[in-house]
Amino acid sequence: MDRTALVTGASAGIGEATVKRLLADGYTVYAAARRTDRLLSLAAAGARPVALDLTDDASLVAAVERIGIETGRLDVLVNNAGYGSYGALEDVPVEEARRQFEVNLFGAARLCQLALPMMRAQKRGRIVNVSSIGGKGGEPFGAWYHATKFALEGLSDSLRMELIPFGIDVVVIEPGAIRTEWGGIAHESMLRMSGDTAYGPYARRHAKMFEAAAASKMPSPPEVVADIIGRAVAARRPRTRYAAGGGARMILFLQRFLTDRMQDRLMWRISQANR
């Protein structure tokens, strides 16, 4: 049986690696990104490029309608697209906060709405939502980003229960430190938003922490996450959550035993260690 998958945020990092993994597993894969010029190598590998803007509903509708016309089915939806907008909550304009939610949460939720009629008709399907260890704990200067990931975790849990009667499963992937463009974007936005405000000395130290982490051996290649997504998609009965790469399991393990105040103090010390 031919199987079809849609992967968002496919132009780089985890999304690109996931497209390659699902192609190798025999899927017809629609690789979605805002800039289709960055999908040329995936198209050469056999993927079908899709122009997709998560803040534009017409773009989302057109993408899913195209899949329905061309293949008549959608077996896997990987909601991977997202970005980290950092800066002190006081400094980040609400318009940017809303955009963060549009991309990281509402765009994913809307794709679920559009994909589910096909999946229900098939009486099977799998939705994979790429969250973060940041969906389980906070971090200074990342309030809006972490809020979107906490929300995605709650959405996924509720949706998974709603879909029990229809044979559709929802899986959450919680990456740790991964070597992608994400860190550079978060670093740049933090300095731009808070580097010269009352929070500046602390935001600049946190930015140095990002730099040190990126230069260390801690970040895993995106293929580590893609392989876990591949296993989660193939499993007859997948786990509800998978920790992936870059210290994710260790951090989630520690969160089970540390109080909130202990986690606050530890995270703040790490944040401010680079003077």
Rank of each mutant, 00 (worst) to 15 (best):
T4K: 04
L114I: 06
V78S: 05
E188W: 01
T148D: 10
R239S: 12
A213S: 11
R3F: 00
A81W: 07
L254Y: 05
R275P: 08
M250P: 00
A17F: 13
P165L: 09
A226D: 10
A44F: 05
L116H: 04
I127P: 11
G82D: 08
A198C: 02
K123A: 15
V78F: 13
R237F: 02
A244E: 12
I173M: 09
A17R: 12
A58H: 07
K208M: 07
D157C: 03
R38W: 07
R98L: 11
I229F: 12
S131P: 00
G82T: 11
V130Q: 00
G134N: 11
T4G: 01
R73D: 12
R124L: 03
P140F: 03
G230Y: 09
I270Y: 02
L22S: 06
L163V: 02
A248N: 13
G84E: 01
E174Q: 14
I228H: 12
V233Q: 00
S11N: 14
I164M: 11
G125P: 15
D196F: 03
V7A: 01
V171K: 07
E90T: 02
V130S: 03
F141V: 13
M118T: 09
R34Y: 10
A273D: 04
M209W: 15
R204M: 04
A207I: 08
G46W: 07
K123V: 09
V19G: 09
A97K: 11
M119R: 03
S216N: 03
D264Q: 14
I168V: 15
G26N: 12
F166C: 07
G9L: 10
G107M: 08
L74S: 07
R249L: 08
T55W: 03
G125Q: 04
G9M: 09
